[in-house]
Design a protein around this nucleic acid. Structure first.
Length: 334
DNA sequence: CGACGGATCCAGATTACTTCA
DNA sequence: CTTGAAGTAATCTGGATCCGT
């Protein structure tokens, strides 16, 4: 079971997503085994926000050829998540099999892996194993970043003494990571290591960057959704106010001039579903969906008192503008 | 087959640092 | 030069899942 609240295009300016791609889904259901893992993958991939954008079967590698013209090394394809865990094909060979548990220790291992890729933590330029000829920009950037980071990276390597030096990723590194993120908001271990290798970063840094990036995306999306819902609320409040006013006007009119009291009883009927008054069965029939389909022209308002014309005016623009107003429950009224 | 513990990944919250007005 | 806000890299914590025993 899933309850979906579609927010329409107003909330999807981000990332150029199509309006129909934004769904605030409230998923309710049992999760077991693979389902749970699948959900995790989907959520991690941002499926909660642009589910339709996420292909059911993510491509094997990140395509990074767009702006930076970089490619993934010719690595073997990404295995299925379950297979990933089955036999650690995605673990870097340099990671010791018995490697250990906490993220700090994992980080250490990854440092080891990174060190295996890089002749020296601070030796950025020469450590790029990929053919980046013609892409000296990134290479230079990585070299520059390596140079800039040399102190912090060194402090990472020498115990750091709990001092947390914060490096700043270079523009090109960020751009490269952004490109990767556009392709996949999550990384498998191989991709992580390859990306780290390309950017001369530690895999842990790449992992952290993706985690933070996902968090930022979600935050931004939440803010946009909140903003949109606020606007919807304002519009609905205004609509409610207007309807109340209209109702009081009608009541006043009724007291002052109860014209329809003189009408034959059969010509007035209250629609049970929308609680509006239909002037006569013919009109009601004419306004039925089928009749409307065949005859789009609304009943001539001038045939009814002006207040009725207002009452039976064509459907107003729904406050949730981008969304087509859902058809009312079985009703003969407009 | 189920229980258990280790490994891993992730989200969310928070901290610490950098940059900039 | 100082300062506060914003941005973000890094850390911590807890939950979920997988896998081997």
């Amino acid at each position: 079971m899933e309850l979906g609240l579609s927010l329409g295009e107003a909330a999807v300016a981000d990332a150029g997503r199509a309006p129909e791609e934004l769904l605030l889904g409230l998923g309710v259901g049992a999760r077991t085994g693979d389902e749970g893992e699948k959900r995790r993958r989907e959520v991690a991939a941002g499926a909660g926000w642009w589910a339709s954008a996420a292909s059911p079967e993510p491509s094997v590698r990140l395509s990074l050829v767009s702006t930076l013209g970089l490619r993934w090394p010719a690595e073997t394809g990404r295995s299925e998540p379950s297979a990933q865990r089955g036999f650690d094909v995605n673990r870097t060979p340099s990671v010791a099999p018995g490697a250990a548990g906490t993220e700090e220790r994992e980080d250490d291992d990854e440092d080891g892996a990174a060190a295996a890729f890089s002749s020296s933590p601070n030796d950025s330029g020469g450590s790029f194993p990929l053919d980046l000829s013609g892409h000296g920009r990134l290479e230079a950037a990585a070299a520059q970043a390596g140079g800039e980071r040399s102190s912090s990276r060194a402090s990472d390597d020498d115990d750091g003494a709990s001092a947390r030096k914060k490096l700043r990723l270079s523009k090109d590194q960020s751009a490269f990571l952004e490109e990767s993120f556009k392709e996949h908001s999550t990384l498998n271990p191989k991709q992580k290591v390859a990306l780290a290798k390309q950017l001369n970063l530690r895999p842990r840094q790449v992992e952290v960057w993706f985690q933070n990036r996902r968090a930022r995306t979600k935050l931004k999306q939440t803010e946009m959704d909140c903003e949109y819902l606020k606007r919807c609320c304002d519009t609905l409040t205004e609509e409610n106010r207007r309807l109340h006013k209209e109702l009081s006007e009608l009541r006043a009119l009724k007291t002052a001039q109860p014209f329809y009291m003189n009408l034959p009883a059969t010509t007035l009927s209250m629609c049970p579903s929308c609680e509006r008054v239909a002037s006569n069965p013919a009109a009601a029939a004419a306004s039925s969906p089928a009749a409307r389909a065949s005859n789009a022209a609304a009943p001539a308002p001038e045939q009814r008192p002006s207040s009725f014309a207002a009452l039976f005016a064509s459907p107003r623009g729904f406050p949730l503008a981008p969304q087509p107003r859902p058809p009312p429950p079985a009703s003969n009224c407009l």
